[in-house]
């Protein structure tokens, strides 16, 4: 058990290091975007003095290293800074006091994104793993081929296309679900779920193929192993061979692909959010990039990076734990 704890601590330290490196990359990348907030806010006709004033008030005139260290120090304390867009510029020399902080702005959006990802995962992961197991059990049968064709077609179609098809069938022709996901704070859980279901279904169709095919491949990969042959020679039923003998040994690759897809659900769903007007973090991110609202962009990137690192870390740790050799050393 001690070796497992050591491995986990190592991975954790590596994750933190990665996050630090990523924070530098984010900062440099975001700050090298062409144009700046002051210019974007004031438009073409702005006087250089006005632009400079805003830049000074936002600290944009400081050297990059100073700004980075300030940002990092703030982020470490949980302070992601204040949104430029929400700042009060009634007087160009005014302060930014009273402005909405980035954290306040992101928090509800992030919660919405997590809700959508959670609902999608709750639907997609069980379906994908079950379909993968069944496809492995009935490999090369009509069922296997049908499942493969269906999931591959859905992953190959653009997300907005899948979304509009679902809207057409489930909201327009058969008005079962709402086509707009206008959720707000204080909504009842059931209402929220109802409004989230259509985007969640769209995303389910997008992510299922990857997980299902990995499950199938990981299981089939093991079917030639001697211990699977042994199980069959003990007269164990085919389903039990797959579920009890193959699945526990195929967990590591399955966990990893699930984690990858969950990360995608948190960071890559802008298109679906736009189609369903879902107030998630993806839309906020895109809007902020448009107006060069640097603190928000940086915070979003940092959240995305953390999500990736955290999920991969979790997958790593679960894969390690799924290996009995590490759980029970000699």
């Amino acid at each position: 058990m001690q070796s497992v704890i050591r491995i986990i601590l190592q991975r954790l330290a590596l994750g933190l290091l990665t996050l630090f490196v990523v924070s530098i990359v984010i900062f440099v990348a975001v700050n090298s975007l062409p144009g700046d907030f002051a210019q974007a806010l004031l438009g073409q006709g702005a006087t250089p003095e006005a632009v400079a004033a805003i830049r000074t008030s936002l600290g944009l005139d400081q050297p990059m290293v100073t700004r980075y260290l300030g940002w990092l120090a703030g982020a470490l304390h949980g302070d992601l800074g204040s949104s430029f867009a929400q700042a009060n510029f009634t007087t160009f020399t005014g302060t930014t006091s009273g402005a909405k902080t980035v954290a306040q702005q992101i928090a509800p959006r992030f919660a919405n994104t997590m809700f959508l990802a959670g609902v999608t995962a709750a639907i997609a992961v069980p379906i994908a793993v079950t379909l993968g197991l069944l496809a492995a059990l009935y490999r090369n049968s009509v069922f296997d081929r049908a499942v493969n064709i269906l999931t591959l077609s859905s992953i190959s179609s653009p997300e907005f296309f899948v979304a509009y098809i679902l809207i057409l069938f489930l909201a327009v022709l058969n008005p079962i679900l709402p086509s707009l996901s206008n959720i707000y704070e204080g909504m009842a859980f059931s209402d929220r779920l109802d409004k989230t279901l259509l985007p969640a279904l769209t995303l389910t169709l997008v992510v299922t193929a990857h997980m299902m095919r990995m499950t199938r491949a990981a299981i089939i990969n093991l079917l030639a192993s001697p211990y699977i042959e042994m199980a069959r020679l003990k007269g164990v039923s085919p389903l039990r061979v797959i579920v009890r003998h193959a699945l526990p040994n195929a967990l590591a690759p399955i966990i990893n692909v699930v984690a990858l897809n969950l990360a995608y659900l948190i960071t890559g769903v802008v298109v679906v959010e736009v189609v369903f007007v879902y107030p998630g973090i993806g839309q906020l991110f895109v809007d902020s990039v448009k107006i060069r609202d640097i603190p928000v962009v940086q915070a979003c990137c940092l959240i995305f990076a953390s999500a990736y690192i955290l999920l991969n870390l979790t997958a790593d740790i679960l894969s390690i734990l799924s290996n009995p050799r590490l759980r029970h050393p000699k």
């Binding site: 211990y227 042959e229 199980a231 009890r244 526990p248 040994n249 009995p324």
Partner: peptide, 16 residues
């Protein structure tokens, strides 16, 4: 009818 394989290390399921 039972079977005893050449490599016991490979023929026991490592997960159980």
């Amino acid at each position: 009818i039972a079977y005893v394989a050449q490599s016991a290390a490979a023929s026991f399921n490592p997960a159980h």
